[in-house]
Computed example of a mutant assay.
Amino acid sequence: GWSGDASGTTNPLNITMDADKTVTANFSPIQRTLTVNAANGSVTASPNPVNGTYDDGTVVTLTAVPDSGYQFDSWSGDATGNTTQITVTMDGDKTVTASFSVTLGINDEKFKVPFKLYPNPVEDIIHIESKEIVEKIKIYNVLGKEVVSSTMSNESINVSSLSKGLYFMIIETTSGKGVRRFIKK
Rank of each mutant, 00 (worst) to 15 (best):
residue 3 S to K: 08
residue 8 G to R: 11
residue 10 T to Q: 15
residue 14 N to A: 11
residue 15 I to S: 12
residue 15 I to T: 12
residue 16 T to Y: 07
residue 20 D to C: 00
residue 20 D to R: 01
residue 21 K to T: 03
residue 23 V to P: 07
residue 37 N to C: 00
residue 38 A to W: 05
residue 40 N to F: 06
residue 43 V to W: 10
residue 43 V to E: 06
residue 45 A to W: 09
residue 46 S to W: 02
residue 49 P to M: 13
residue 49 P to C: 06
residue 50 V to A: 09
residue 52 G to H: 01
residue 53 T to V: 15
residue 56 D to E: 14
residue 57 G to A: 04
residue 58 T to S: 08
residue 59 V to Q: 13
residue 62 L to D: 02
residue 63 T to C: 10
residue 66 P to M: 00
residue 69 G to W: 13
residue 70 Y to Q: 02
residue 71 Q to Y: 08
residue 73 D to T: 14
residue 74 S to L: 13
residue 75 W to I: 06
residue 75 W to V: 02
residue 75 W to H: 00
residue 77 G to S: 08
residue 77 G to R: 08
residue 79 A to D: 09
residue 80 T to I: 10
residue 80 T to M: 04
residue 82 N to G: 12
residue 88 V to W: 07
residue 92 G to S: 15
residue 93 D to P: 11
residue 96 V to T: 01
residue 96 V to Q: 03
residue 96 V to W: 08
residue 96 V to P: 09
residue 101 S to A: 04
residue 103 T to D: 07
residue 106 I to G: 02
residue 107 N to P: 09
residue 107 N to K: 09
residue 110 K to F: 11
residue 111 F to Y: 15
residue 113 V to M: 05
residue 113 V to G: 05
residue 115 F to S: 01
residue 115 F to K: 02
residue 115 F to E: 01
residue 117 L to K: 07
residue 119 P to W: 06
residue 119 P to D: 09
residue 121 P to Q: 05
residue 122 V to N: 06
residue 125 I to S: 02
residue 129 E to W: 03
residue 130 S to T: 08
residue 132 E to V: 02
residue 134 V to L: 02
residue 140 Y to V: 00
residue 143 L to P: 07
residue 149 S to W: 00
residue 153 S to F: 01
residue 153 S to N: 14
residue 154 N to A: 07
residue 155 E to H: 14
residue 158 N to L: 05
residue 158 N to V: 00
residue 159 V to M: 06
residue 161 S to N: 15
residue 162 L to W: 03
residue 164 K to E: 14
residue 165 G to C: 02
residue 169 M to Q: 05
residue 173 T to G: 05
residue 180 R to Q: 15
residue 180 R to M: 10
residue 184 K to S: 02
